[in-house]
């Protein structure tokens, strides 16, 4: 377990320290939080490299570690429009108790000898961010984002999937005290179409899901280069999976409402689960690089009767704590 942890940290550090040690240094437009993002876009022609790692640790039983590692490049097409591309690297290491289920991790480890330990390329994401109002001279900063994400691996358990997502993001930011105190709200909506399993053995599942990711951050520059903050994150999803029932019919669950996002028919289905996190963040910026770290604990969660909810927390899609670490370099 410890060796696995060291491997993941080494992977993250090697990816981030490579450019740091090898290149001359510049400066950054940075993230002050783990999930929340500000309204800033990159200046025209500027390129930034980021490496974000979020360690999601602990379920209500067994041993669960998942590292979501994202090398990312951001480029300023114009002062108001930023293009970013990121690779999704998933590193799983878990063995949860069978009575934690039914859930994807229990199903997967049943096929792999009681545990699952793999690092995989999970997919990629391409997105655009457009700044409409400047947080520095308008009364409120406002940016809009749009993106496409492709996933070949399921974030929860590492199994093979076929998932396309379209993302829409609203960024709001308000600064106080001559921009020393920053507050931000990021609302990200994902429209996901996910296929998994085999049609032939009737394990095929089709999920059309609308997911909401909302993050609220406050950060204060306590000293030159140093920011301390707090962050709240809510994540929930709304869906009714289509799968083979006991009669062998491929159908929706009659207890749940399906989500739909066809062009002229957008409907929010039943909420499957939700998780809510809260914790502190710290940010340090040098002229040439910056780093942000944060720890967010699940404070409460819930979901439908099909979700694993115990002690007022969600455990099938959420964890005890998320540790985030992001490095950024202007290139």
């Amino acid at each position: 377990m410890f060796v696995k942890y060291i491997k993941v940290i080494s992977l993250s550090l090697s990816l981030s320290l490579f450019p740091w040690l090898a290149l001359e240094k510049a400066n950054a437009g940075e993230s002050l939080w783990v999930y929340a993002k500000g309204t800033d876009t990159m200046p025209a022609g500027e390129l930034e490299f980021k490496l974000g790692t979020i360690a999601r640790l602990g379920k209500n039983s067994g041993d669960y570690k998942f590292y979501d590692i994202r090398p990312e490049l951001e480029y300023g097409i114009s002062d108001k429009l930023t293009l970013s591309t990121e690779l999704l690297l998933f590193s799983h290491d878990y063995s949860v108790d069978p009575d934690s289920g039914p859930g994807p991790m229990v199903d997967t480890q049943a096929k792999t000898g009681g545990s699952f330990d793999k690092t995989q390329v999970g997919g990629y994401e391409v997105s655009l961010k457009y700044n409409i109002l400047s947080v520095y001279k308008d009364s409120l900063g406002l940016s809009l984002g749009a993106g496409y994400e492709r996933r070949d691996r399921y974030r929860l358990d590492g199994t093979e999937i076929d998932q396309d997502s379209f993302l829409g993001t609203l960024y709001l930011q308000k600064n106080y005290l001559d921009d020393l105190l920053a507050t931000t709200l990021t609302v990200k909506t994902e429209f996901e179409r996910r296929k998994s399993g085999d049609w032939d053995d009737q394990s095929f599942v089709l999920e059309e899901e609308i997911a909401l990711d909302l993050a609220l951050g406050i950060s204060y520059r306590v000293a030159p280069k140093w920011n301390l903050g707090i962050e709240f994150r809510h994540q929930s999803d709304y869906l009714n999976p289509q799968e083979f029932n006991e009669q062998g019919e491929f159908a929706y669950n009659p207890d749940l409402k399906p989500s739909n996002f066809d062009l002229f028919d957008i409907r929010l289905g039943s909420q499957h689960q939700n998780g809510n996190y809260f914790g502190p963040t710290v940010h340090y910026a040098e002229k040439d690089w910056w780093v942000t770290a944060g720890a967010l604990w699940q404070v409460f969660g819930g979901g439908s009767k099909y979700a694993d909810v115990r002690d007022n927390k969600n455990w099938d899609e959420h964890e005890k704590v998320h540790f985030g670490l992001t490095f950024g370099y202007e290139i």
């Binding site: 990816l15 490579f18 450019p19 090898a22 290149l23 001359e24 240094k25 510049a26 400066n27 390129l47 490299f49 090398p71 490049l73 002229k287 040439d288 370099y329 202007e330 290139i331």
Partner: peptide, 14 residues
């Protein structure tokens, strides 16, 4: 990553 970063390493400093 190193290749990409080296290519664009031409910034102005404080």
């Amino acid at each position: 990553t190193l290749g990409v970063l080296t290519t664009f390493n031409n910034r102005v400093y404080a």
